[in-house]
Design a protein around this nucleic acid. Structure first.
Lengths: 149, 149
DNA sequence: AGTGAAAGGCCACCGTC
DNA sequence: GACGGTGGCCTTTCACT
């Protein structure tokens, strides 16, 4: 699907605040809200707009620890490893990557104890596990949600 | 702020689809929409609900390459390094971490050429740069946006 | 692809319990 | 803290350009 500047402007506004009323979006891009509605629908159907998410502070829900975990998997055991990882509570993202690790994960835990259980109890003991490195996030210096538009 | 089960249920619904009308949320949790409105406002003010974001497919905007970049910084040059990184187009997240790197970043690029410019043109030449490792994301096996509720 | 109009639905804000 | 009611705004659709 081809996106023009108007589409990009709409995306920018909704990426900033997904609950912005279409009528307000229309005002800002100087078009009717029917048009906005139309374009948004088209972008949803084309898979450009994939959803609308409320952002929740992890700390408020008791997740005080967040980490990246790099993982090496034994050759031939990739599929079973991924399947296990997907099912681990706290594992939010599982990416296949080039470089030092085969898999890069993003995990949330309630505490370091909880993270320890997750790593040594579930991940290190799984089928296909080779070795891992846990990079605990001490702080986030900069975070821009979404895509540059 | 203390969250009860009703609050959590509201968060779960809005994390799934931030544009769900409050009246619909109210129906699902079997309360009035005035109550939902009330609770949402309280959670926004308390910083539990930090925003609402439309999710956009990076590929649709021409960002075909995504990577994690681990970075080591020369001691005493942390601040200037972070400042530089924040300003690099394509750098979306900058986290301070324990482990093998000092900084873990998440970057988007339009192509491998673009990524090369970003790494060798801007990051490797910056003040305080020690060394880096780029982990290009070949695929994402699992991704659960937001926090487990 | 964009528009205005219109019906129905929704939001936000009361006052009340 | 939760509720019903209300006025104004918003969404969605449609015929027309």
């Amino acid at each position: 699907m081809e996106l023009d500047d108007t589409d990009r402007e709409i995306l920018r506004i909704l990426q900033e605040d997904a609950r912005t009323p279409f009528s307000e979006v229309a005002r800002r891009i100087d078009m009717s809200s029917a048009t906005v509605h139309d374009r948004v629908s088209r972008m949803e159907e084309a898979g450009v707009l994939t959803g609308y998410r409320a952002e929740v502070d992890p700390k408020a829900l008791g997740y005080g620890v967040s980490a990246f975990v790099g993982l090496r998997v034994r050759q031939g055991h990739e599929e079973e490893a991924l399947e296990t990882l997907r099912a681990v509570e706290g594992v939010r993202e599982v990416h296949l990557t080039t470089g030092e690790y085969d898999v890069m994960m993003r995990v949330y835990a309630e505490s370091t104890d909880d993270l320890r259980d997750l790593m040594f109890g579930q991940i290190a003991t799984m089928d296909g596990f080779d070795r891992s490195q846990t990079m605990v996030i001490l702080g986030t210096d900069y975070e821009e949600s979404g895509v540059p538009i």
